[in-house]
Nucleic acid binder design. Structure first.
Lengths: 241, 241
DNA sequence: GTCTCTCAATGGTTCAACCAATTGTTTCGA
DNA sequence: TCGAAACAATTGGTTGAACCATTGAGAGAC
C-alpha cells in the first residue's frame, strides 16, 4: 500500500535550514530574535561557515531571516511580511506559467471579494487613506502623468486589500498588482475613462459600508479592465522580443 | 517631489541572481536549459565559487533553478511550478501572520470561485479524476482512516483547482490546503457528516456544468467547515505550547 | 556633556583544496 | 559478441583559513 520514499540524500544546508524552520514553527524563535553569529552556529551544527551561510541564505530568500552587517548585526528572525510569497508569484508570471488572461481573471475573483470585505471592515483611517489615494489619482490624471497614475492605482488595490483585514488577500493582491505592473509596462500605458468614476462609486459604497454594491462595482470595473488589457495584449502579442 | 532612494549597496550574489533572473524574464533562458558549470560561471562573473553558489542557492530556493550533481549535472532552469510561492505562503502561516480565521475565510473566497470555474472548464478527464477521488474518500471514511481521508479531501480541492484552469487559483489552493493540513494536524482530526454528501452534490453540478449551483454548494460547505474548524481552534487555543 | 576616534564584532568575499555522486568509457571475461 | 565490472571525467557539495567592509559601542579628548 505504502510507496517507497526517496532516500533522504539531504544536503547539509537543507538539514540546517529545516532545523531552524522547525524552531520557528514551534515558536521557539520569535520575530526580532537574533541567531548566534555565523561562526558560532557553524560550530554548533558541525559544518563549515560556507555551508552554514548557504542555509542562512536560503532562509533569507524565503523571507524568514534578515541578515545585518556590523557589530550588532547577525541573523534576525523577520516579521512575516509575505515578500517572498509575492516574489514567488511574480516569478511565475515572468516564467510564463501565469499568463495575462490568468492574471486578469484572478484579479476579478480576488478584487471582487476584497472590495466586499473592505467595505465591511474598513476603519475611518482606511477610508481616509483611500480617499487620499483617489485624490492623488485624480491629480495625476489631470496632469497627464500616466506612470504615476498607474502606480497610484495599484496602490489603491493594495490599500483596499489591507482594509479587508485578511493577509492572504493582502499578499495575493500585492502579487497581482506586481504582475499587473509588469504587464502594463510591457504593453504600454493607456488612458481610459472609466476607472476614476468607478473609484468614486466605490468610495461611496465604502462610506455606506455597502459590501454587495462595492463587489458589483469592482467586478464591473475589473471586467472592463480585463477586456481592455487583453485587447492590448492581443495587439502586442506578436511584437515582444 | 521625488524622494531619495537608498543607495544600492547590493551584495555580489544579489547582483548575479538578478542578472540570471533578468535573462529568464527576457526569455533568454528557457525551462530545461542548463547553465554553465559553477566554476565557469564564477569566472564569467568574476566572483569566487562560494559567492556564485550563494546566488545559485537563492535562485534554487526561489524555485527557478534545479541543481543536479554528477557528470551531466549542473544548474537547470526549472519549469515554473509554484512550489516556492506555496512554501512562502505556508511559512506565513507558521509564522503566525496568517491565522486560522484568515485561512478559513480565504478558503471560502477562493474555493467558491474555484468551484464555479471548474464547473465551466472541467474536461471529462477532470470529472473522472474527481469522481475517483470522492470514491477514495468514501472508502477511507468507511474504513475510519481519518488521516488518509483528510489527505484525499485536500487532494479534492487541488484537483478542482486544476480543473479551473487558472494557475493563480491552483497555487493559492495548494497553499491553502498545505496550511489547512497543518491546522488540522495541530487541532486533531475530527469526523463530520456533511462533507461527503456535499461532495456528491458538487459532482452532480460538475456533471451538468452548473457553475452557480457548484459555487453555492461549495460556499455552504466551506462555511460549515469554517465554523467547525474555528470551534476546534477555540477549544485548543489555550493549550498550544 | 558632547563630539571624535578607535576598535571589536559580524556578515561578505576569496582561495584552494578535497569529497561525493553520476555518467560515459574502457576493459576484460564468458 | 555481449555484459558486467572497473575506471575516469565532470559536476555539485563541503571544508578551512584568511582577509575585506560595515556597523555600532565605548573610550578618550575637549
Amino acid at each position: 500500500m505504502r510507496e517507497f520514499r526517496p532516500v533522504a540524500t539531504r544536503r547539509a544546508f537543507e538539514e540546517i535550514a529545516s532545523q531552524i524552520r522547525g524552531r520557528l514553527a514551534r515558536q521557539g524563535l520569535r520575530a526580532g530574535d537574533r541567531l548566534p553569529p555565523e561562526r558560532e552556529l557553524a560550530g554548533q551544527f558541525h559544518v563549515s561557515r560556507n555551508t552554514l551561510r548557504e542555509a542562512l541564505r536560503s532562509l533569507e530568500i524565503a523571507g524568514l531571516l534578515e541578515l545585518k552587517k556590523g557589530a550588532t548585526g547577525g541573523a534576525f528572525i523577520k516579521e512575516g511580511g509575505g515578500d517572498a510569497a509575492v516574489a514567488g508569484l511574480a516569478d511565475l508570471y515572468h516564467l510564463g506559467t501565469i499568463k495575462p488572461e490568468h492574471l486578469t481573471e484572478a484579479r476579478i475573483v480576488i478584487g471582487t471579494e476584497v472590495a466586499r470585505l473592505a467595505c465591511l471592515r474598513r476603519t475611518k483611517e482606511d477610508l481616509a487613506t483611500l480617499e487620499a489615494n483617489v485624490a492623488a489619482a485624480e491629480h495625476a490624471t489631470t496632469k497627464g502623468d500616466m506612470v504615476n497614475r498607474a502606480l497610484v492605482n495599484y496602490e489603491f488595490h493594495r490599500l483596499l486589500a489591507r482594509a479587508a483585514r485578511n493577509p492572504v488577500l493582502t499578499i495575493l493582491t500585492d502579487a497581482l498588482m506586481e504582475m499587473t505592473r509588469h504587464f502594463v509596462e510591457s504593453v504600454g500605458y493607456m488612458p481610459n475613462r472609466y476607472v476614476m468614476p468607478s473609484r468614486h462609486r466605490l468610495l461611496a459604497c465604502l462610506r455606506t459600508k455597502d459590501g454587495d454594491a462595492a463587489a458589483r462595482e469592482m467586478e464591473s470595473m475589473l471586467k472592463r479592465l480585463q477586456r481592455f488589457h487583453l485587447a492590448a495584449y492581443g495587439l502586442n502579442a506578436g511584437r515582444k522580443k
